[in-house]
Design a binder for these strands. Sequence first.
DNA 1: CAACTAAATTACCATACAGTAATATAGCTG
DNA 2: CAGCTATATTACTGTATGGTAATTTAGTTG
Lengths: 111, 111
Amino acid sequence: MVMLRKEEMSDDALAMIANRFRVLSDPMRLKLLHTLGEAEMKVSELVEATRAGQANISKHLGVMLEAEIVARRKEGLNSFYRISDESIFELCDLVCERLKTQFETRRAVLE
Amino acid sequence: MVMLRKEEMSDDALAMIANRFRVLSDPMRLKLLHTLGEAEMKVSELVEATRAGQANISKHLGVMLEAEIVARRKEGLNSFYRISDESIFELCDLVCERLKTQFETRRAVLE
DNA sequence: CAACTAAATTACCATACAGTAATATAGCTG
DNA sequence: CAGCTATATTACTGTATGGTAATTTAGTTG
């Protein structure tokens, strides 16, 4: 546990971790994950839900598929995507909680 | 809890979360956090520990200071940095565990 | 105060990447 | 098979960002 504190941490390991964070560092991808949180959806539904371009959504889904954060199931003309890495919700929750604490602390300074 | 699953999630909130992930999405910054994990250090020590350029390190530290992931204490000519957001270790651990699981699954496929 | 030092900032270049329009691919349907 | 549809891919553009050299800033010491 607490890997990052342990002495040995190779550059390759750091690069892999950094890459995972990079995949999560885009608002549109987080929006897709948020939307997908509820249920499996096909691309056209995600396009409608996010009101973004089809090519854009396809590209973002491709990035997350490659990172194995989502999984794809093809059925005829449609592609259905779903979350395949539930741990991202834990990550987002942690960040959310931390941000709230930060803002609360900052606000308290003004009193 | 599990914020990302809740229905309402504003674009601003998504942008803030994405930004936090972005700050963590660079190998050199993770290396600095890893190095800082043990104890407060001054910039020159971090430069030596990471074998990177001084300007580079200063810039990365500035990014993390702005994000309130590290804190700074000035003493004479020196600046001492320390981790101010311990939750990043939890984030990194979660990612690490998930990556290990992924690779193990992928390896198992070859048997 | 002049010389020195640590850290921050600036200016610059190169690369990476998000968004988008156009096109390709693959499956469906008449 | 011809046309249609959903998704993926390609090519391109603009913007953001990491690395670095040069400079600035702030503090120290003779």
